[in-house]
Design a protein around this nucleic acid. Sequence first.
DNA 1: TTGTTAGTTAGCAATAGTTGCAAAATAGAT
DNA 2: ATCTATTTTGCAACTATTGCTAACTAACAA
Lengths: 153, 153
Amino acid sequence: MRSPNELARKFREKQLKLTPQRQLLFGLLHQNDSHPSAENLFEAASKQMPGISLRTVYQTLGELAEMGELQMVDVGTGAKRFDPNISDHHHFVCESCGAIRDVEIAAKPKLRDGSGKFEISQVGVVFHGRCENCVPSAKRSPAQQVKQKATKK
Amino acid sequence: MRSPNELARKFREKQLKLTPQRQLLFGLLHQNDSHPSAENLFEAASKQMPGISLRTVYQTLGELAEMGELQMVDVGTGAKRFDPNISDHHHFVCESCGAIRDVEIAAKPKLRDGSGKFEISQVGVVFHGRCENCVPSAKRSPAQQVKQKATKK
DNA sequence: TTGTTAGTTAGCAATAGTTGCAAAATAGAT
DNA sequence: ATCTATTTTGCAACTATTGCTAACTAACAA
């Protein structure tokens, strides 16, 4: 899933052109387990490809999500986050520094609502709390804040 | 929790004035188990109090949430939803009609992340799927769409 | 009843995040 | 080298929400 050939094949399969923008974004995302937002990826991409458009970042992320190459996750902190880990997992959000960590749920609880009438296709679990860098007793100082506008809650 | 006196007391306690707007919104919310958005409540409120401001609705909902009188839930469908049910429960979102139902989690799984390093203060579980009115085999037609702008996904 | 005033409302501008649209650019096929 | 269906860009528009502030009013006092 990481070789350039693989990538090219996947794109061709979906009749998507192998543009430099797509290659860059795909690569950046896969080197990144911090659950970046579109804006985060735009900044990273801009360093390697000055002039790339934020619009393209959104567009491409949307396409990759549709292709099943990444998960779009909304943890309720404003911007959507993009996760190259497409396995069945959930998320932990640090209330202090904003860090997001993948959480594997070992024993998946049997899902059924009381009435048995719902048809559940997707379960999203989001944990909020303090991460290892931010628990009061932590040795280290709070992790670098996930980049976000100062005005954001 | 429903008597006017109760309400008045609670407001006074927090040194909040018992304004007609607050009374109306509090009442509307408690008659409503559909998990309305601020906009939904604004529309409902406007019928009984033409001229009420959307700004006031947001303001009041924020205050009630801070008071612990309601839960503010973000199920990832755009606008925040407001739930007068403040018990420990989760949510099911119908992908078809947008309905939101409370889901009680009977046996609460023990929460611990693998490392034991996180400090989890809040867990939000959101189920997405089709509700009883929307499962293909349903007798009834899809429930009335939760009011939302047609342009919204 | 009438003041007084701290708390509240309403209106509007501003913000964040995201999408729609149309024109300019280009990957990939011939 | 040419052609054209896709892409990329830039920008306007949009949704949800908040900041600011002037006008208003509930609640308490006189």
